[in-house]
Design a binder for these strands. Structure first.
Lengths: 350, 350
DNA sequence: CGCCGTTAGGAGAACGTTATCACATTCCCC
DNA sequence: GGGGAATGTGATAACGTTCTCCTAACGGCG
């Protein structure tokens, strides 16, 4: 590997001069500058970023920790982060923690040793001791999608409450009163948040939540697939379900299809997180669209402000609004007749 | 940031001794070892990987260049790579080149400066001069999904020919004789490969390829959406189309839905690349499943062998087999009657 | 008692860059 | 023509590790 020393030698100058010419600082006469540049080109010189990091104390590298990059939601978030930081010359180290504290810890240790300039993380839960340690060591952290209870770091999240509320209001407007939730792990921020939003929205709508209408899944496809059966076996089964994330929605829809349950006639479905393929389903899926890419981009911007020192105040929280994309999986706008054929504890006018 | 120097001081030993104790090499008495370890813990010492890289000439970091991590196929590939290398202690720098040579070049330059230990790339095309430069500088490269014509580097690809052939044979078996291709950019390896496979398979099946039956898209959803119209406006339109990647399949299906074209009665569809959501479509989508994650994992393994020096022979090529997942978007197994109502140039027995 | 092998630990060079300081020139102005 | 600023360049010290040499103490053995 050719070093600046080789370049200097070939240009007939000292290392210091070569560095000035290449680094574009200090005095250099145009003539020597040219000579150095020519030599560098001739030798195909590429400065060693490791050595530079050593000296500058900055690596121009950011780390991103998500649970799984193969989940389209996180893939988009990562993409958004990258878009935001590429222009400023930062590269991204991608870490998939799989909601596994051990794996997350492993990655955080590596991240710390690599002296990354900053970190965007969608924390899996846990006490966050390692994150606190990272912060103490001076590495700025931005949380995305999820946040830890008492971690004094910036955060970019989506307004889960508003999203779930919009979905439930939509269902209610269409005449649904028996609405179930296929939720996520309570261990995770998004799982908890969406569950509480569901409970609050149901309360607001003065709708009862019967036993078995709230299920706790794993945010994975298999769990959506497995749990739908429980809804179907219920004596008083919900006429509509809200599924708390994209993967579980796939599983749930598959299970409903296998069971021959018609959507929305026998079961209305609204998914959290809109996907490319939502419109091509039959019926097209009504979904709570999360601005995943913007989420990432915002996180990237906040992080950059910290990294460059442009901002050094107290932790900030950015809340992005989701958007209910109404398609056809909850029924037509007019309230379906069947919704009123059964006696509910409260009539429509109550 | 605490350094090994601080640890040594606190333990009352020299830097050399501290290094031996922490690095687990050379002689150290159990007692001093304990003292050093305790000091390191007390000071929350995390070795500086930058400095270590400097000395060792290895960064324990790999780079991955794909066109777009937000495309589920590449997201899975990346995931596969990560799975393969995490165990060996390597981190991954993710680069989205967007098929943009300038962006790719930008990243390759950064990668080179960062002295990454190896590179997995899904090359966008172009002359590959930069890649050759990287190789010349001693960085092992593995190509994945796509490959450059004359680049002497390992490659892991899918058997595109076999995949397309299986799809077309399947269609033929179901009675289709007018089969179109919604292809990808000829500029890209996969685009070319799948086009040629289509042509070869049609020739083998002794089926004609009429004007307008072969379209060149961009591998993006919008292009699938836009181009389907061309098929539909054709006087002699195909009864079946093969769509050359996942994103274009979504666009195509959406356009067909909007146009009210029934699948498979009016148009059979088989997509390249199976997706999670393929089974929940109506009808469920028949697709050529690519082992995306395995593709990545294999690339990771090959790269690791190069990086560690376990293998140093001539460039290898791993070809993974795709699998046709038959669902219902091409019609039932029994040849549909309508397929024979029109006169073809060649009868079924010819 | 001297020699040698073993055990333990320290000094210091190296990795490749950046950046500070010092040292020359040259030039200008009073 | 001399002092001082402006201009150009070189020497060299960092940055934090790793690792090769050295040195020293000690015990065993001839």
């Amino acid at each position: 590997m050719t070093t600046i020393r080789d370049v200097a030698r070939r240009a007939g100058v000292s290392v210091a001069t070569a560095a000035r010419a290449l680094g574009d600082y200090g005095y250099t006469s145009p003539r020597t500058r040219q000579r150095v540049l020519r030599a560098a080109r001739a030798l195909d010189y590429h400065p060693n970023a490791i050595a530079r990091s050593m000296i500058k104390g900055r690596t121009q590298t950011l780390a991103v920790v998500v649970s799984d990059n193969a989940n389209p939601f996180f893939a988009s978030v990562v993409r958004g982060i990258e878009d935001a930081v590429l222009g400023q010359g930062y590269a991204i180290i991608l870490c998939n923690a799989d909601e596994d504290p051990a794996k997350e810890a492993l990655y955080l240790r590596a991240i710390r040793q690599k002296r990354v300039d900053g970190l965007v993380i969608s924390p899996s839960g846990g006490p966050g001791g390692l994150l606190r340690g990272l912060m103490a060591s001076g590495i700025p952290i931005v949380q995305v999608d999820r946040r830890l209870a008492r971690l004094p770091a910036d955060a970019v999240v989506v307004d889960n409450r508003a999203g779930v509320r919009a979905a439930i209001e939509h269902l209610v407007r269409l005449g649904h009163r028996r609405i179930g939730l296929l939720g996520g792990p309570r261990r995770l921020y998004t799982g908890r948040e969406r569950l509480q939003a569901y409970l609050a929205a149901m309360r607001e709508a003065r709708l009862p939540v019967a036993d078995g209408w709230v299920l706790e899944g794993t945010f994975k496809e298999a769990s959506g697939h497995a749990l739908v059966g429980r809804f179907l076996r219920l004596r008083r089964r919900p006429t509509a379900i809200v599924v708390a994330n994209n993967l579980m929605t796939i599983g749930a829809l598959l299970a409903l299809k296998e069971a021959g349950v018609r959507i929305p006639e026998e079961m209305a479905v609204v998914g959290f997180d809109d996907m490319d393929w939502a419109p091509i389903l039959t019926p097209p899926l009504t979904a709570i669209a999360q601005p995943a890419r913007d989420l990432g981009a915002a996180a990237g911007v906040l992080l950059l402000e910290r990294v460059t020192g442009a901002f050094a105040g107290r932790p900030r929280t950015v809340v992005l609004q989701p958007r209910l994309v109404v398609r056809e999986s909850c029924g037509t706008r007019a309230a379906p007749s069947w919704a009123y054929t059964e006696q509910e504890s409260r009539g429509p006018t109550a």
